[in-house]
Design a protein around this nucleic acid. Structure first.
Lengths: 185, 185
DNA sequence: ACCTGAACACCGTTCAAGT
DNA sequence: ACCTGAACACCGTTCAAGT
């Protein structure tokens, strides 16, 4: 139990930061607090991250990987709800990934993670009727907007009427699928 | 040009804060900077706002009013793109309104503004084929997600191919409208 | 009633210095 | 190579005091 971090301080900081993020939100996530939890001085993190935003970017990259797993392990018909459920389970992480605090272009790894995510979603939503890239963009937009508006609380009443956020999401996405089925019938 | 703010300090602070928000983003928007621009001491704002988040909430309320105007002054068929265009013109304001930093329930005026906005959008998107509240929720989700993903830069390449963000939005929303038209035909 | 100024407890970031 | 501690320039927020 030496207080020495032989090269794993970066990982320790990421884990501490991840816990702060998920439990208390980005606002409460300071480099100094992460350092404190990792048992290290407040300036030590600068050996491993350029600045606070770089730490946040690393957490967002993790998030894209988590999202990808959550989506692809589901059968095709459930992937729309899976996207929304990911946002409901990891609201703070989801907001960090898509909240605009981090510009993709500023962080090469984040940029790559974002593009990988897009490619993955295009495949995942193929069954949603994507005869064209535009349809994939529309499908992503639909689930993404739904997730965000639910997190914001804009559908609070409708959610109660539907028996929960996930159930409401299923209804909304189901209504679109029905419309599409009617069209192709 | 007396330095005395006869009751309009609240308005002066809101205006200064609005400028900081739109030009430099939420992160740069401190109470102290707003006070500085209003020519007042750093503790004066506390006479008019409970805390920093209350100032942000007031700016978000303004935003919902701006959004409502931007939408309703357009013909029905353009309201989807109008929503996206609002986000493109006021990205920082839009993120403040929907970025989850402010919980609707914590600010009665913000809560009311959010509900008013929902009602307004339900009317605005009626022509989009809303046979049910679910369809209105889906329409809002679609334009909202599209706006957010464009702001995040996730569609950067597709936008370039389409000749700009607004043009891309038109294409995506148009593709959905086509699908709907085919169904009812 | 409204504003000021000092004060406190936090930050992010830098940098010389230690091992 | 990696970490510490002092230092600096910011914050949000509170509170006694001024007008």
């Amino acid at each position: 139990m030496s207080t020495y971090h032989h090269g794993d301080l970066r990982a320790a900081l990421l884990q501490a930061a991840g816990e702060i993020l998920e439990k208390e939100g980005v606002a409460a996530l300071s480099l100094r607090e992460a350092a404190r939890r990792a048992g290290v001085s407040h300036s030590a993190p600068y050996r491993h991250f350029l600045d606070r935003d770089s730490l946040l970017a690393a957490l967002a990259v993790e998030g894209f990987s988590l999202l990808q797993d959550a989506i692809t392990k589901r059968p095709e018909g459930d992937r729309g709800v899976a996207y929304v459920e990911f946002a409901l389970i990891h609201p703070q992480r989801f907001r960090l990934m898509f909240g605009g605090q981090l510009r993709l272009g500023d962080y090469p790894e984040l940029h790559a993670a974002g593009e990988g995510n897009y490619r993955n979603l295009q495949k995942a939503f193929e069954s949603l009727g994507s005869d064209a890239p535009l349809a994939a963009a529309a499908a992503w937009s639909l689930v993404h907007g739904l997730a965000n508006l639910i997190l914001d609380g804009h559908f609070a009443q409708a959610q109660r009427d539907s028996g929960g956020a996930a159930a409401f999401a299923r209804l909304v996405l189901g209504s679109v699928r029905v419309a599409r089925a009617q069209r192709s019938a």
